[in-house]
Design a protein around this nucleic acid. Structure first.
Lengths: 222, 222
DNA sequence: ACCTGAACACCGTTCAAGT
DNA sequence: ACCTGAACACCGTTCAAGT
């Protein structure tokens, strides 16, 4: 029993990355293990190290594969603002579908996936007609905002998974806790609890992007 | 040899948290271990579990201790905008001093430290005189931007530490890589490489906050 | 009530040995 | 060149046993 199935294709970096993505998607961030991975690939743990430097490398590569797909249609025909919105939403949706991308992105400072995002965003920001310094400010503000949302989304999903509850149930429970806070100590949080329950993550995310775009526009207009 | 020193004070949650912060500061995120902690506290691993639920709980508590200090002067006399700037900078500096706070914050969705930040920011946003919906949008945009920067800062420091190089050397090396990218594939990133080398993290962070505040102001003015 | 520390069930990574 | 899989040095967490 449990006799290991002999694999058909030979091992390769791409097959390892594909299997990692599948594992990450189905079992969450903690689900990616060299043991689980080598079982799925019908090989030994050491074989994986022939194609991959270490776990961090593997995670970054998996993240990059998803980000590359998402950022592929980098240059659209629309206005820079609309393209930025589309890019941001694409990233949001990708992270929503693969929460582990959010947390991996956070840890992949200055690596391939981040480069892709910086470049795509930057090209559109550049088309906005700002000074060099404002370009840098605008691009990094957008980037950091997106990464912030990405990280939070990933954390929410991960928490819900770890406690084996539905993501929206988790947010609902959070709203309930918030609404019961001491009104003297937490007036704002309390007042915003009901909005937290019914809010639309995606719409709120886009509203934040628009806020930053608005800030950029008002700088340009000075 | 290595005879363990008998501790003088009795164990308590606060002492455990203080020791955790010291460990995290001196040895980085991976330095916090139940083994290292129990050695430093001259006790057994199990004893710690009497006062603390698990490692996540410990990390969140340590994070909360730092955030609480930082957010203490929540209500200043200045204008809401200036107070928001001060709060954001305070958080930036705290995370700069304790990089692990950045990554812990990211994973502590909806928990105590996050609540403090939301409340402090929210109170100032509220004083800005926006509609309820705009308040929510503004507060969460600011929060996510701050968290995004926090996460990146933490990642940069962690990476530098792991590779045993100076943080600024790391950023310098990144700038060099960027400046050597293919100008056809990465025109923006390449053009911005020199700025990356000489930039001031803190000033850039504040410029981003100002951009968001500008976006808020322009919405209010409509 | 609080502490001890061995034991358990995992990890990522390495490496001699095979093909 | 590529793969095997046992072994190593760690983890977080538990728990019977002590005080």
């Amino acid at each position: 029993m449990g006799k290991r199935v002999r694999r058909e294709e030979s091992l390769s970096r791409d097959r390892i990355i594909a299997a990692s993505i599948a594992l990450l998607d189905s079992r969450g961030e903690d689900g990616l293990t060299f043991r689980a991975l080598s079982e799925r690939l019908a090989t030994g743990a050491g074989a994986i190290y022939w194609h991959v430097e270490n776990k961090g490398d593997l995670l970054t590569a998996a993240c990059d594969a998803v980000v590359a797909r998402t950022m592929a249609p980098c240059a659209a025909g629309a206005s820079p603002e609309d393209t930025i919105r589309a890019l941001a939403l694409g990233l949001f949706d990708a992270i929503d579908a693969h929460p582990w991308v959010g947390s991996t992105l956070t840890r992949a400072a200055g690596q391939a996936p981040m480069l892709r995002i910086v470049e795509c965003l930057g090209q559109q920001v550049r088309a906005l007609g700002l000074s060099d310094e404002d370009q840098w400010t605008a691009a990094s503000a957008l980037l950091h905002y997106i990464l912030g949302v990405a990280g939070q989304n990933a954390a929410n999903t991960q928490f819900a998974r770890a406690h084996d509850i539905d993501r929206s149930d988790f947010l609902g429970a959070m709203a309930t806790v918030w609404s019961q806070l001491d009104p003297n100590e937490y007036p704002f949080t309390r007042s915003v609890a009901s909005r937290m329950r019914e809010h639309d993550d995606r719409a709120d995310f886009l509203a934040g992007v628009d806020l930053i775009l608005g800030g950029i526009a008002s700088r340009r207009g000075r």
